[in-house]
């Protein structure tokens, strides 16, 4: 059904590049989804629907370093998986659940510095915004598209994320790290 929407893989070479990319990262995408979703079908749905976006933006991240690609994919898949899980919870309970803001199933390990410690303590949405902007190098417009928010909201989100990071650092005496 969604195949009719895909427009950017123009040449056989591009299609093969994406196919190769998909094979390389398929497991990571499924492992990410699986940490949040219970069923294989749900995981497959998330990966398939994510591929619509990933194909459309292939030119953006194809040149990333492998770890940057993995971050870009992981955050996208994780958020789509949470969307699906949350929709099902709403359906089950008929109310808007206050979903806990945690990095479920993802333990980044021991922080190496006060700045990394502060990064870990940020709300997930703030941390994602900082990673996508300052690690993956997304522009404000790209960040807005990635997070399905408006550009002005993306700017505000980044501002709040930076301010929150600074505040945690200051409170914990790690400023000027």
């Amino acid at each position: 059904m969604l195949a009719a929407l895909l427009l950017l893989l123009k040449t056989d070479e591009e299609k093969e590049q994406f196919a190769q990319f998909y094979r390389q990262y398929e497991n990571l995408m499924f492992q990410t989804a699986r940490q949040i979703l219970d069923s294989q079908q749900d995981c497959e749905d998330v990966v398939q629907s994510s591929c619509v976006y990933l194909i459309d933006h292939f030119d953006k991240y194809a040149s990333y370093k492998p770890r940057q690609v993995a971050a870009y994919l992981t955050l996208w898949i994780r958020n789509r998986a949470k969307d699906l899980r949350d929709r099902k919870q709403w359906k089950t309970y008929g109310i808007m659940e206050d979903i806990a803001d945690t990095a479920e199933g993802m333990d980044p390990g021991e922080p190496e510095s006060p700045l990394e410690s502060a990064l870990e303590k940020l709300p997930e949405r703030y941390r994602d915004a900082l990673i996508l902007r300052y690690y993956n190098g997304l522009s404000i417009k790209e960040l807005a598209a990635y997070m399905t928010i408006s550009e002005s909201t993306a700017r505000k989100l980044l501002q709040r994320s930076r301010d929150s990071l600074e505040k945690i650092l200051t409170e914990e005496g790690g400023g000027n790290a």
Partner: peptide, 10 residues
């Protein structure tokens, strides 16, 4: 720090 955080997360 993002690089290190992402490495741990992955």
């Amino acid at each position: 720090v993002c690089d290190h955080y992402v490495a741990g997360m992955l």
